[in-house]
Write a protein that binds this DNA or RNA. Structure first.
Lengths: 342, 342
DNA sequence: GTGGCTCTCTAAACCGGTTTAAACACTCAA
DNA sequence: TTGAGTGTTTAAACCGGTTTAGAGAGCCAC
């Protein structure tokens, strides 16, 4: 029952033309009589022929695929709201073009470099998305030397030959701080992400400088790791300070939700005793109790934009411009409240 | 600086042999003198040559890639703890073999069939994982007619020519019910997943029959959609019953956590007034307040097993047996408590 | 010396497309 | 009648591997 797939030669025979003619017709190249084109396409249709991407890949030296290497512990990845939505956005661009997305998950301990190397040297992808940028990110040089086109998610600090698609976290962060200030908070702390990540430090920096603008200093900044467990630890340390904060801004929702649980466990009421804000607007943020004030980005649109930009680069039609997406914005829910309300 | 990649011909010249010899040496085929093999491998090494997977694909008619089509709304996918971990497990098998994972995310409304068709007809993958099995799942027939090897995640109800890798949800579900019964609960309700999914009904059925075994009937069964919003709606309906449940078992953690928030919002205390249990043991389950009693499967191991099985099938060495993984098991936390404790 | 055997190795076909150079058919102008 | 020009089509090379049939070389036995 596994009918052999027809090849271009079958179509050629059926239409009474040469292989080359079929190829021309399929790709809309000029030089064929319209009648011939019609006849060829009809024959292809009748045979249900679709060109083998394997053969095409070989002859045009393109993979018709883009790659995404996710360097993250699979366990932690589970509850990361970013990638699934991002991938959805990427797919929405790739699918209509007949491209595929090649995914690679490497645990932090493993050889991340090897992941990119494999993708490049096997010629499996035409370009990759560079996410979770780090300071002095070695991957920029790696990809340059591999000759693999890439798009960076946000702008790296090192000199980069690659276009960047950017979603500025800072306005959202600043909005959180202002919101908390307006509510009367003065002792505001921050649970940051790992400081080797550019986006983590961006949020931290924006937080600190927004406070500075109001003449305040952070009530505490705890560096954590974006995980729920880490969020709890950081929360405990902050609450144990001689002058504990009245509000905490977390660098992601997961830490915020976990931190909120930890605070509640110690008997604190949120938001009466402690205001809490997160970052991501993950699905649960709206539905935990109380609903989490957070910052919403649009990872789906991020994925779309990144895929489009990477394709522009891969297609090689002129220089590719950086792209700035609408910034993340504040979503106010019940987890933050007026300091006087208690 | 983009040094042209060396080809097998370059290696052949350098080693002073024919292309065929290089191929033999690389693939460990017999018939070459050991000295020659060494010389060839050395030459390949010096040139940094790795065979192009494009060319290999074409000549051996294999893609060296497996496919996963995820039919789910990207927004909902965000907080699904299953796939990322599953993919991590798959990768752990694929990476050492030099295989790639091709991912496709299609929104429920879109043409899911087209997703599989593309993967098959483009010859992009050698086989696919069939997840989220549905009743009378049309994809079994589709893949059969496409001639695309597959492995099903759990056993489909329709006759299937594909091996199944199974992780039984029922023991975990039964354990939840028994746990709640032991705590003294008699009015136990269930928030189910969409009943067109096999795994959703499996949990529901196990729930109902476990209760029946104790001579009880469900205090209510609300079918929902695995989302946080759906979990809240279902919870409200259950709590509005004339005889509301004292315990609710949710078909996944996301609905459970959201439902817990909803219950708390109405003034109910968890677990004092209402016990809550989930399913998945997602990262947040441990850290919400109170910690969520739930059922833990091992999606990473699931991914490993599925990838191994699919590769066996693709490699075509004899019949492939179904595989049964250790069942999910109960994790008891603070969200469930003795009925008398209040 | 010849046939047969084993051990190495190579030339060439092949996978299924794309692309280039050239051939062919036809018209039109000189 | 010839030549140039235009439009259409094809044959063949090519992408970079794998695989098959067979060529040589060396050795042994008869």
């Amino acid at each position: 029952m596994s009918k052999e797939r027809p090849t271009i030669a079958d179509v050629a025979v059926r239409a009474g033309v040469s292989k080359g003619a079929v190829s021309f017709a399929l790709n809309g190249k000029p030089g064929l009589a319209q009648a011939t084109v019609d006849r060829i396409l009809a024959a292809a249709d009748e045979l249900g022929w679709r060109p083998s991407s394997r053969a095409r890949s070989l002859s045009v030296s393109k993979a018709f695929a883009l790659g995404l290497v996710i360097t993250r512990d699979p366990g932690v990845l589970s509850s990361d709201p970013f990638f699934p939505a991002f991938i959805g956005g990427v797919e929405s661009v790739l699918a209509p073009r007949g491209q595929a997305l090649v995914l690679q998950v490497v645990a932090p301990g493993e050889d991340e470099e090897a992941g990119y190397r494999r993708l490049a040297q096997d010629g499996r992808v035409d370009g990759v998305f560079l996410s979770d940028l780090r300071h002095e990110d070695p991957r920029i040089d790696l990809l340059t030397s591999l000759g693999l086109p890439a798009v960076t998610l946000n702008r790296p600090e090192v000199d980069s030959p690659f276009p960047a698609v950017c979603l500025d976290d800072r306005p959202g962060t600043v909005a959180v701080v202002q919101h908390l200030l307006e509510l009367g908070h003065r002792r505001i702390a921050h649970v940051a992400g790992p400081q080797d990540f550019v986006h983590a430090t961006a949020r931290t920096d924006a937080f600190v400088s927004a406070l500075a603008e109001a003449g305040l200093r952070p009530a505490g900044v705890e560096t954590s790791d974006f995980t729920a467990a880490g969020g709890i630890e950081a929360t405990k340390r902050l609450l144990a300070l001689p002058e504990p904060p009245t509000a905490i801004f977390y660098a992601n929702d997961r830490m915020a939700i976990a931190g909120m649980g930890a605070a509640q466990q110690t008997g604190l009421r949120v938001p009466d005793d402690l205001s809490i804000a997160g970052f991501d607007d993950s699905e649960l943020a709206e539905f935990v109790h109380p609903g989490l004030t957070t910052v919403r980005a649009d990872p789906y649109a991020f994925g779309e934009a990144a895929a489009r930009t990477l394709n522009q680069l891969v297609d090689g039609e002129g220089p590719v411009a950086d792209l700035e997406l609408p910034p993340a914005r504040l979503i106010i829910r019940r987890s933050t409240a007026n300091l006087e309300d208690r």
